[in-house]
Structures are given as C-alpha cells and as structure tokens.
Computed example of a mutant assay.
Amino acid sequence: MTISANAQEGTWSVSVETQQAKEGGFQSTIHVKHVSPEGDFERTFHQLQAFAVEREAVLEGLREGMTWIALKTTRTIGV
C-alpha cells in the first residue's frame, strides 16, 4: 500500500508519498512547493533513511519537508 500526505504553511506546501525501499522498509519522496508573484518554486527529494513502518516514513517525510521550508524561509539555505 502507498500512503501519501500533505501539509501547507502560508504559500508553501509539502506533499509526500511512500514507496518500498530496495533494502526493505519504506522511504518517501518529498515535494516542496512555493507559490509567489515572483514565480513558483518546486523541489523534489528522496528520503535516505528507510523505515520499517510506512506511517513513520510519511511522518518523517513531512517533517523533513517542513524543516526544509523553515531553513529556506530564514535564508539559512539557498537553492
């Protein structure tokens, strides 16, 4: 079974879907999106860690995406 989830904060959104990891367990693909008058921004990345439980992969994927947004909005990282 594949689980997906999303979260929004202002003009930012994170969506996550899981897939089975090659080494066993589950990993997520994380999509971060920002909509603004200056232009839309999208970034997709994959979790490196595999989780035994699919639900944990989804929750960690959302956490990683929201952390990425926090770092981007505070200008800690520039991509």
Rank of each mutant, 00 (worst) to 15 (best):
G39E: 06
H34N: 00
R43N: 12
V58E: 06
F51N: 10
R43H: 12
I30L: 06
H34L: 10
E38K: 11
R43L: 14
R43T: 14
A52I: 03
T29P: 01
T29E: 15
T44P: 13
T44C: 06
H46P: 00
E38N: 13
T44L: 03
A50I: 06
F45Y: 13
V32N: 10
E54A: 07
V32C: 11
P37K: 05
V32W: 02
H46W: 13
P37T: 08
H34P: 02
H31K: 09
V35A: 01
G39W: 03
P37F: 11
F41L: 05
A57E: 11
E42D: 09
Q49Y: 12
D40F: 00
R43G: 11
E54G: 07
R43F: 13
P37V: 08
S36V: 04
V53T: 13
D40S: 03
A50S: 15
E54Q: 09
I30P: 05
L59Q: 15
T29W: 14
L59P: 09
F26P: 03
V58H: 09
V53W: 02
E38A: 07
E56D: 15
H34W: 04
I30R: 08
E42T: 09
R55H: 13
K33W: 03
Q27H: 11
D40H: 00
V32F: 00
E56W: 04
K33M: 07
S28I: 06
T29N: 12
F41A: 00
A52L: 06
V53Y: 10
L48H: 12
V35K: 03
V32S: 11
A50R: 08
H34Q: 12
K33F: 05
T44V: 15
F26T: 01
A52D: 12
H46Y: 15
E38W: 04
Q47M: 13
H46L: 15
Q27C: 11
F26R: 07
S28R: 09
L59T: 11
A57W: 00
G39H: 02
H31F: 09
L48N: 15
L59Y: 13
K33T: 11
Q47L: 10
S28V: 12
H31M: 13
L48V: 11
A52R: 11
S28D: 01
F41G: 00
F41Y: 10
H31L: 12
A50Y: 05
E54N: 02
T29H: 09
Q27I: 15
V35N: 02
L48F: 14
S28T: 06
S28L: 04
E38T: 11
Q27S: 10
I30M: 03
K33D: 12
H31E: 08
H31W: 05
I30W: 13
Q47R: 10
V35M: 02
F41D: 00
D40V: 00
K33N: 08
S28G: 08
Q49S: 10
S36M: 01
E42Y: 05
S36E: 00
S28A: 15
V53S: 14
V53Q: 10
A50F: 05
Q49A: 08
E42N: 11
H46R: 14
F51L: 06
K33Y: 05
H34Y: 04
T44D: 12
F41W: 04
S28P: 13
Q47A: 07
F51Q: 14
D40Q: 01
V35H: 07
E38L: 06
V53R: 08
V35G: 00
Q49I: 14
Q47S: 01
F45Q: 05
S28M: 04
V58M: 05
K33H: 03
D40N: 09
L48R: 15
G39N: 00
P37M: 03
E38R: 13
